[in-house]
């Protein structure tokens, strides 16, 4: 079992409120990703769950039991840190075995569990090395090994991939996802990278300035963002926003159109503009277009290898059924369709 409930949790550091009031339920076995820009309080929230910080108000329930006042050791959770936080003076074997040693298991038992973890993570050849002799990806695996070895109620990941290079990051992303499918243990994963959130999560929690903006599955958030912040945060490239007369036309304070829901054409369309930069990715082209009449700038994503370049004139037409409407406060209005 490993359900986590936050009940009106708040956190203040010396008069500065980081988390004003957060309530959330994480079900057993779920893969939940906390995502948001840096400084949004996502790491703080994770540390509150871990017990590394005290809540200023509210309760934290683990499996329905109030764990608010328990120390990190008593909560039965495991954490993977951004910097891996391996013990540099211990071998990989000792690192992975440390939680078991602290739990006072006997030697044979520790060795057996360490071997199991090492097998799952392909660390068998490195057990006698020190962390300093390992590559970034291997260290990451050791950190995960140290977390899984004592079968915690839930795993907490604090931006675990941000110190890895791009290729390795994609690899580890897959490995962690696979690990989740294998172990079926609750995982709470913090990241600022919305791609990680979209690809890994069962459930995404979007945070902004300590507030929970929206909770939902990746596709829910993509299709039905609750407000402008979520709409702008989820999706890559970012959603375009227009306000003024163009938004009035849709009876909204502002409207959002995703770059992939705009069709560019050479001869006619809704808006006319001039291309600033065209980014050719091979499979896609990203066009950054300045609209005529000071309407604003739009990013357009179009498949294939459309031959356009800087300075070209172009017509753009949005997919009307996929326009997002927002009121003055930034909240989403009913879908136009």
């Amino acid at each position: 079992m490993g359900s986590i409930t936050l009940d009106h949790v708040s956190k203040t550091f010396g008069g500065h409120t980081v988390v004003p009031d957060a309530s959330l339920t994480i079900n057993d076995g779920e893969f939940v990703v906390f995502v948001g820009p840096s400084g949004c309080g996502k790491s703080t929230l994770l540390r509150l769950i871990a017990g590394l910080e005290d809540v200023s108000g509210g309760r934290i329930l683990l499996d329905g039991r109030d764990a608010t006042t328990e120390g990190p050791a008593q909560r039965g959770l495991a954490m993977v840190f951004q910097s891996y936080a391996l013990y540099p003076h211990m071998t990989v074997r000792q690192n992975i075995g440390f939680p078991l040693l602290m739990a006072k298991l006997d030697k044979a038992e520790i060795e057996r569990k360490v071997q199991d973890a090492a097998r799952i993570l392909n660390l068998g050849d490195y057990l006698d090395r020190k962390p300093g002799q390992l590559s970034g990806g291997q260290r990451q695996r050791v950190a995960i090994g140290r977390a899984i070895v004592r079968a915690p109620k839930a795993f907490l990941f604090d931006e675990p991939l941000s110190n890895l290079d791009a290729a390795l990051r994609i690899n580890m992303r897959l490995e962690i996802t696979e690990l989740h499918q294998q172990l079926k243990t609750t995982m709470v994963y913090v990241t600022h990278d919305q791609v990680e959130a979209m690809t890994m999560a069962d459930k995404i929690v979007v945070l902004n300035a300590g507030r929970v903006e929206q909770v939902g599955s990746p596709l829910d958030l993509y299709r039905k963002p609750a407000n402008r912040f979520v709409a702008g945060f989820i999706g890559s490239p970012k959603m375009n926003f227009l306000d003024g007369a163009e938004a009035e036309r849709y009876r909204a304070h502002s409207i959002g159109i995703r770059p992939e829901h705009i069709t560019p054409t050479r001869d006619k369309g809704r808006w006319h503009g001039r291309i600033g930069v065209a980014e050719h990715l091979g499979s896609d082209v990203f066009l950054h277009v300045a609209l005529d009449g000071g309407l604003g700038h739009l990013t357009v994503r179009t498949p294939g290898d459309m031959a356009v370049s800087h300075g070209d004139e172009i017509w753009l037409t949005p997919d009307d059924s996929r326009i997002y409407r927002f009121d003055k406060a930034g909240l989403a209005l009913d879908h136009t369709s």
């Binding site: 550091f13 017990g51 590394l52 910080e53 005290d54 120390g71 990190p72």
Partner: peptide
């Protein structure tokens, strides 16, 4: 920054 218990 740490928990109240650690501070104590």
């Amino acid at each position: 920054m740490a928990t109240g218990q650690a501070q104590k």
